[in-house]
Write a protein that binds this DNA or RNA. Structure first.
Lengths: 253, 253
DNA sequence: CGGATCGTTGAGAATTTTCAAGATTAGTGG
DNA sequence: CCACTAATCTTGAAAATTCTCAACGATCCG
């Protein structure tokens, strides 16, 4: 596991009206009035390095974030150090909602690359719900989407073989990343280590290594130090017996 | 797997003002005005038998439900029949939200006992968000809680040994059931088969049987045909290395 | 150079699955 | 009442998967 570093905050603030994410076809268009509120809701930006702990289990964060750029992951630890990665976070994802609503964070979030996060204040959530039902609905929508992804991940860890699981994970990450333009058409590059894969799939590092090798041999992915490239999304999905996410237009808060 | 039966609907309608659930200490008190809306929001009740399919993957349900009484579970199937149980549903739980928000159900729900469900209409969700921000907030809260439980389940399936996993599951179900008065102080009776346990833990039926035997031998649970009794919640939690759910007061919609 | 991270490999050990069979119980139709 | 079926739980043993242990190679960086 990478040694977590401290977040580094910056003052620079992207204008929500010129949000680089919102024009993507995957995100629904916003009303002028919604945009205005979000602009006001946004308190600033947080820039973190690769390997930084963005949110930590057990803490009471006063903030929630929307990922503007970069990769990260959500995870839980057991007292004896076993780690389970729950999901990956990518641009457009809202993180810290659980902590904001229910008080204490029940999981941590760490970055896989430098990340830029839009910072919102928990205390303004109430106002959002009171005055902007459309945005409130969007937040619930995003929570339901996270739940749906967790359902898929749980099915995978519980019922797929090691090889299927690894194929599913690569296809899952790849298709999500593609939808938000994180990876180009020809450079499906994912910045994770085999330890991350192991902790996501619920497998040992050694067995993960051997499983990844099989995917490489089949030319479905290519692994290089500190990351991998997805070569054949279609093939991965077939191997995993996975239908793919319904990638419908979604809100961006 | 039990053969799913058809739901049976009834006309009888509990008065929300006399809701048998709301007085429980685990649920937060409602404003008079919230209660009034919920009463209007509630379209009726659905009574289903044990083994009924309440919601089915792939369908577009126009309803969502709050469980008034009984047990059930959420699950996903793979094309070849492998089944993963994602979570259990108990009184006070809201089901069908994913389907209502995102269109198509991505999982199914089946009953483990006769159940009584309060029926709400998807179309009125919008009005709820527009006019009752407190309730909207509650719904998001419930979605976040579901996500939190899924996180725990995923950690368990991914990183706990078979014995720990089984212990966790029993403690998890037991503590949730206790919180909503589903099981009395001395009769911690859970109506599930070993096949359900296997499909929850991601284990084979045979190995699940042997694992459950170990829990029985340690006097942590007692298994009888078609269900089990939890004997030692504390012991189960220690064995699973599980801290328990933060059982805070929660909303009931 | 020395330390740290990351990936790779072989081999034995442990866990878990699969296969096959049987016991018990409850319900059903004759 | 009885024969029969279906569901559930049990058990043993072989097979397959996965884990642990123990190395080692490569790269990067101060």
């Amino acid at each position: 596991m990478a040694k977590p570093q401290e977040p580094i905050s910056t003052v620079r603030k992207h204008d929500c009206a010129k949000c680089p994410l919102r024009p993507l076809p995957i995100f629904r268009a916003f009303e002028q009035q919604e945009l205005a509120f979000v602009t006001r809701f946004k308190k600033g930006e947080l820039a973190v390095d690769k390997g930084a702990t963005v949110l930590v289990e057990g803490s009471h964060s006063a903030h929630l974030y929307t990922v503007l750029s970069g990769w990260g992951f959500r995870f839980k630890l057991m007292p004896d150090g076993r780690r389970q990665i729950l999901n990956y976070v990518m641009p457009g994802d809202l993180i810290g909602l659980q902590g904001s609503l229910m008080g204490e964070m029940q999981h941590s979030v760490e970055s896989l690359s430098p990340m830029l996060l839009c910072v919102f204040e928990r205390d303004q959530l109430e106002e959002l719900y009171r005055n902007h039902p459309g945005l409130a609905y969007d937040i619930t929508w995003l929570a339901a989407r996270e739940e749906q992804m967790l359902d898929e991940n749980l099915l995978s860890v519980g019922r797929r073989s090691a090889l299927e699981r690894a194929a599913y994970l690569m296809a899952f990450i790849g298709s999500r990343a593609q939808a938000v333009g994180l990876i180009g058409r020809r450079s499906l590059e994912v910045p994770i280590t085999q330890q991350h894969v192991a902790d996501t799939l619920g497998l040992s590092l050694v067995h993960t290594n051997k499983t990844i090798r099989k995917l490489s041999n089949r030319k479905l992915i290519a692994w290089h130090d500190g990351g991998c490239t997805i070569l054949d999304m279609e093939g991965l999905m077939v191997l995993a017996r996975w239908e793919g996410l319904g990638q419908r237009v979604r809100p961006l808060v």
